[in-house]
Amino acid sequence: MKTIGLIGGMSYSSTISYYEQLNSITNNLYDDLTTPKIYLSSLNFKEIESLQHNNEWDKLGMILNDEAKKLEQIGVEILALCTNTMHKLFNEMMDSVSIEFVHIAEATAEVISGKNFKSPALLATKFTMEEDFYKDKLINWGLNVLIPNEQQRETLHKIIYEELCFNKINESSRDLFIEIVDSVKETGADSVILGCTEVGLLLNQNNSSLPVFDTVQIHCQKIINSASN
């Protein structure tokens, strides 16, 4: 297998999921104790979150680019970013970096399109829901992307940053997420994208009224597929 490099810590709770799933998928693929060689660059999320909300994306791009170059220098062959929101800086991160990058939105769009869904609702941070960097990847696959209303977007963003990024699970927040899924279903959504790597802590196929596409699961499968080729 090719050596995998992860840029994570945004937040640590989702990075844990990446590590578990990458190893589990590999065990199942080879039907033995095989596990991938992984280098993890785990960033200080307090610094990242502050720069995000202060709109200092140029600095964030430089941070990611520096980490990507370090991983390339130590022999990483497949690179992945363990967060949906920070894919906003894909181009900046990969500047002068030549190793293969597995894009979470591209992987997700491919799976949704392959299963013949047309109108997924995107549940994520406000950055991901309201800006075009992520939705454009989905639209390029012919998908009609729906997003929750403004109040619902505020609710999602607040719960993600104030609870899920601390790995806090509140049943009242789970109920709110379920209500938002029901609401977007009424507006025409035929499926839902867990478009923040922490959303799967509250939502899954068992409690969603719509088919669920978990971006962490999809991304991890694509990473292992790429590393195994």
Rank of each mutant, 00 (worst) to 15 (best):
G8T: 11
S50R: 15
D132G: 02
I193A: 08
G61R: 09
N225D: 15
A189S: 05
L201P: 08
I48M: 05
I48D: 00
N116Y: 08
E186M: 04
L40Q: 04
I48C: 02
V184M: 07
L138K: 01
L43E: 08
S173L: 00
E171Y: 12
T3R: 12
K88N: 13
N170E: 13
G9E: 10
L33T: 13
G61I: 03
M94N: 02
L203T: 13
K46F: 13
I147N: 00
V97W: 06
K70H: 11
C82P: 07
K222G: 05
E49I: 11
E150V: 14
K137L: 03
L203D: 05
N167L: 04
L138D: 00
E198T: 07
D136S: 12
N140A: 03
W141Y: 15
Q205E: 15
L60C: 01
S173M: 01
L164S: 13
S183L: 02
E179Y: 05
M93V: 11
T197W: 03
K46P: 04
N204Y: 11
A227G: 01
D95G: 10
T187W: 06
G114E: 02
L60V: 03
K118S: 12
L29R: 15
T15K: 00
S42A: 14
I159F: 02
G114A: 01
L176H: 06
K46V: 13
I218P: 01
F45D: 10
N206V: 05
I25M: 07
Q52V: 11
V199W: 04
E162N: 14
D58H: 14
Y30L: 12
S119F: 07
E77C: 04
K135L: 00
M86D: 02
F45Y: 14
L146M: 09
T35Y: 04
A121Q: 09
T155K: 14
D32I: 08
E110A: 13
F133P: 08
M94Q: 09
L43R: 03
I74E: 12
I218C: 01
L164G: 09
S98A: 08
H219Q: 13
L51F: 05
I223P: 07
I178V: 14
G114H: 06
T187K: 13
F177A: 08
E106L: 10
S226Y: 12
S173V: 04
N204M: 04
F90G: 06
E20P: 05
V199M: 11
T83A: 15
Q205C: 05
Q217S: 15
E198H: 03
K118Y: 05
M10N: 06
N167F: 00
K185H: 08
N140F: 01
S113M: 14
